[in-house]
Design a protein around this nucleic acid. Sequence first.
DNA 1: CTACCAATAGATACATTGTCTCAATTAAAA
DNA 2: TTTTAATTGAGACAATGTATCTATTGGTAG
Lengths: 150, 150
Amino acid sequence: MALTKRGAAATDQILEALDEQGFRSTAPRRALAGAIGEQERHFTAEGLRKQLPPNIGRATVYRTLKILVDAGVLCRVLLEDGDLHYQMSHHGHHHHLLCVHCGSSQDLAGCDIEDVLESTTSRHGFELSGHWLEVYGRCRNCIDSEQVAD
Amino acid sequence: MALTKRGAAATDQILEALDEQGFRSTAPRRALAGAIGEQERHFTAEGLRKQLPPNIGRATVYRTLKILVDAGVLCRVLLEDGDLHYQMSHHGHHHHLLCVHCGSSQDLAGCDIEDVLESTTSRHGFELSGHWLEVYGRCRNCIDSEQVAD
DNA sequence: CTACCAATAGATACATTGTCTCAATTAAAA
DNA sequence: TTTTAATTGAGACAATGTATCTATTGGTAG
C-alpha cells in the first residue's frame, strides 16, 4: 500500500512535468509514467521496456526518458560497472550513494563538495561549470546484516 | 621532439606494464602502445583503431585497452556528453578537470575530496568503498584566450 | 636452432544501447 | 466535428563492446 501510494505520487509527478513542459498526455506516456512509479530503485531503459506492453516501441521509451531527464524529474545514475540507470530525481542537483551490495541508492544532500571543488579547481586556474559524482560503498542495512551473517 | 620523447616514454611505460603483468610482447600490442604514446589527449577506442593499420582487429584493441586499464596505466575519462575516453594514468587514484571548450584534461591531484566524502557519507551510515568524479569547466588557457576574442 | 604449445590474433557474429526516418495515428484546439 | 501538428511504432542504422572460433605466434624447453 505504501508502495502503491509512493508509486502513484511519482507517476503524477511525471505526468505533471510532461504537462508543464507542454507535452501531450498520450497513452504510451501514461503507461511509462505508471511503470516508472512502480520501480523501487534505479532502472535501465531496457528493463523498463520489458515491463511495458510490447506494443510500446523502443524509441518511445528512450524519447520519453530523455524528456524526463531534461525536465529534471528523472536523473541518470552511473553504476560502478559502467551501466547507466535512471531514477526519480528529488532534488535539483545532487549525488548518489550507491550500495554495491544491495544496489539501493540514497541521495547525498547537504554535501559541501561544491565548495571544495571550487577552491581546488581555482588553484588550477580552472573555471568550474559542472561535475559528475557517484559514490560507491555499503549502506547501513547491508553493514548491519553482514555483522549477523558473518 | 618534445612530443616524440613524451610519446616514447608513454609507449615504454605501457610495454613495461604489459610485461610486468606477464603478457606477451606481440606486434599488435607494440603498435597499440606506440599509437597511445602519440595521443596528445584522451582518445576513444575507435579513434585509436583508426590510427592503426587495418589488419589489427577491433577485438585486439578493446582487449588491450581493458588490460591496460586494469593494470592502471590507462584510465577512463567520462566526457560531459557521456562519451567514454581513455588516457594515460599518471597517478594512482585521481580525477580529471575536463575543459569543455578545448577538450584538454588535467589531473586533479592534491584534492581533499576523499576526506569530505568520508565524513559526509558516514553521517548517512554509509561505508565508502569508491567513487567516480569528473569535473567540467574551462581551463586557464581558454579563459585567457576568450578575454581577447570577446 | 628447432619444436612445441599456450597465449594471442583477426574475423566475424552477436549483444546492448541508443538514434533516425517515415508513414500512420491521435490529442486537443478551433 | 474538423483540422493539424505532435506523437507513435516499426524498423533501419549507428556506436561500442563482447564471445567464439580457428589460425598464428611468442617464448621456452630441449
